[in-house]
């Protein structure tokens, strides 16, 4: 089929909802009467749907990256546990759990909590949800895109250098959060704390996240008292970090 340009133009304008009422009636009549024209229309309709789906798929992938660093919801864990536990296993597992708890408590009593290890267990780098690197030749290459790309590629040294440059031009919450994370990974804990404190003081967004990472930075340095104070605040928030902070507080104690 070799569609003529006029038909294609009509279909585009129909899909864009820019036909006059009369043109619309004529087109819909043709769709019913002319199978070839109908096929051409269906093809274009599918292409539009496919383009939209492709974009939404990309958005979904970005959300999945974000989800991967968020703490599990408590209820979800309970539910999973519920599914796994069959009634006849319950008494046996209860005994095993008590024994395991006894062993764990014994070792915890004998051995002080390793804060560095707790940090490693809890820390997950916050993802770049601010300026995802997408496949596009149209995306310019500059310090900004390079900084986010380096962060995504886990080149935290390069990312930190470039983020600092960006902050000299303009203070931004997303950049502060990611720079703080990069600094934490690089072991620059006091610099990371400065980033998180600036974020908490100067912006309304990402307050809970900044406090969570601030708490972790204190934990990494073994400043348990400060870590507890901050995590206590996080545990009172409405965000999903609250349950994670409560669990961590129990472990620190």
């Amino acid at each position: 089929m070799n569609p003529n340009l006029h038909d294609i133009d009509l279909i585009h304008r129909y899909l864009d909802r820019s036909l006059s009422d009369e043109e619309k009636v004529n087109l819909e009549k043709r769709l019913k009467e002319e199978p070839e024209f109908n096929t051409l229309y269906r093809e274009h309709q599918m292409l539009v749907q496919g383009i939209r789906y492709s974009g939404l798929q990309e958005k979904l992938n970005q959300l999945r990256v974000l989800e991967s660093v968020l703490p599990e919801t408590v209820h979800v864990e309970d539910k999973k546990r519920q599914i796994r536990l069959h009634s006849y296993w319950k008494p046996l597992l209860a005994v095993a759990a008590s024994l395991a708890l006894f062993v764990v408590l014994f070792f915890l009593w004998k051995k002080p909590v390793d804060h560095e290890q707790l940090f490693a267990q809890e820390f997950k780098a916050y993802p770049n949800i601010f300026e995802p690197i997408v496949r596009s030749d149209a995306q310019p290459i500059n310090d900004r895109t390079e900084a986010f790309a380096a962060y995504e590629a886990r080149d935290y040294q390069k990312a930190a250098t470039l983020f600092k440059k960006l902050l000299q031009e303009k203070e931004e919450p997303g950049v502060l959060l990611l720079l703080g994370n990069a600094n934490l990974i690089l072991g620059n804990t006091s610099e990371a704390r400065n980033n998180f404190i600036t974020l908490i003081n100067n912006f309304d967004e990402y307050d809970t996240q900044a406090k969570w990472y601030l708490g972790l930075s204190y934990l990494k340095d073994g400043d348990v008292k400060s870590a507890q104070l901050i995590l206590q605040e996080v545990s009172n928030s409405e965000f999903s970090y609250a349950s994670k902070a409560k669990e961590l507080l129990k472990q620190i104690e």
């Binding site: 959300l63 974000l66 209820h75 539910k79 601010f130 919450p173 967004e205 809970t208 409405e238 965000f239």
Partner: peptide
Amino acid sequence: DSRGLSMVYEKFRNEFIHWIIKTYGTDP
């Protein structure tokens, strides 16, 4: 501004997931 969507995502995540499990008996 991607902060908008991530803010919404994190803000309602717990409540939504708990609600959908409770109301519709959905797997977590």
